[in-house]
Simulated scan of single mutants.
Amino acid sequence: MARTLIKVPATAKRGEVIEIRTLIAHPMETGYRPGADGQVVPRDILRRFTCRYNGDVVFSAELFPAIAANPSINFHTVATDSGTLTFTWEGDKGFTQTESVTITVTG
């Protein structure tokens, strides 16, 4: 399991635009780089990132080999209801990781 860092405000007012910041530890091998033995290191990248807010997709991105290792993905959404934000990273070699955080919406 990869290490993740997720920053979401614990509380927000209804209708407030909130910033969400994510980071995941992943090597992101492009499949083009030669290894120490001269052989090409097999491709191993994250291909998709999705954020769901109470089950509804609020942000998703397709990722490609040019993205940096340990990708940081930051975006904004509107706080509508208290609930759960679920983040899913999908990659090569069957890699899938899902993390969740809760947010309390007032007003």
Rank of each mutant, 00 (worst) to 15 (best):
E99A: 10
A25S: 14
G91V: 04
P42Q: 05
A79T: 01
T22L: 02
G38Q: 03
D37N: 15
T88H: 03
T77Y: 07
E90W: 03
G94I: 01
T84H: 01
S60G: 04
T96Y: 04
P65T: 06
A68D: 14
S72E: 15
I24C: 00
P71G: 05
K93I: 08
A69C: 03
T84D: 10
T50D: 14
A79S: 03
T30A: 14
T98Q: 13
F95T: 07
Y53N: 12
D37M: 09
R43A: 06
T96V: 12
A79F: 08
G38S: 03
F64N: 13
L85G: 00
F87M: 02
F64V: 10
Q39G: 14
N74S: 14
F64Y: 14
P65K: 12
I67K: 13
S60H: 12
Q39T: 15
Y53L: 14
Q97C: 01
W89F: 06
E62H: 12
Y32C: 13
P34S: 08
F64M: 14
R33Y: 04
T102R: 13
M28N: 00
T84A: 09
T22M: 07
G38K: 03
V58G: 02
T102D: 14
T96C: 09
F87S: 01
T96L: 12
T22E: 08
Y53E: 12
M28G: 06
E62F: 08
A69G: 06
F59Y: 15
H76N: 10
F95Q: 04
I24D: 01
P27W: 04
G35D: 11
N70C: 11
F49C: 00
G94Y: 05
G38F: 02
V101D: 08
N54E: 05
I24A: 00
N54C: 10
A66N: 15
A68S: 12
D44E: 09
G38A: 04
V101G: 02
V78T: 15
Q39Y: 10
N70P: 07
N70A: 13
E19N: 14
V58D: 01
A36T: 11
T22R: 01
V41A: 13
D56C: 07
L63R: 08
I67W: 09
P27I: 04
F59G: 07
S60R: 10
V58P: 11
T77N: 13
R48K: 15
V101T: 09
V58A: 05
I67V: 13
R48M: 05
I24T: 04
P34D: 09
G55I: 01
G91E: 05
N70L: 08
H76F: 09
A61V: 04
G35W: 08
S100K: 14
F49S: 00
N54R: 11
H26P: 00
T80F: 02
R43N: 06
V41C: 07
A36F: 12
D92Y: 06
N74K: 10
E90F: 02
P27K: 02
A68T: 13
P65A: 05
N54P: 10
N74L: 03
F95G: 06
R33A: 07
R43S: 04
F49A: 00
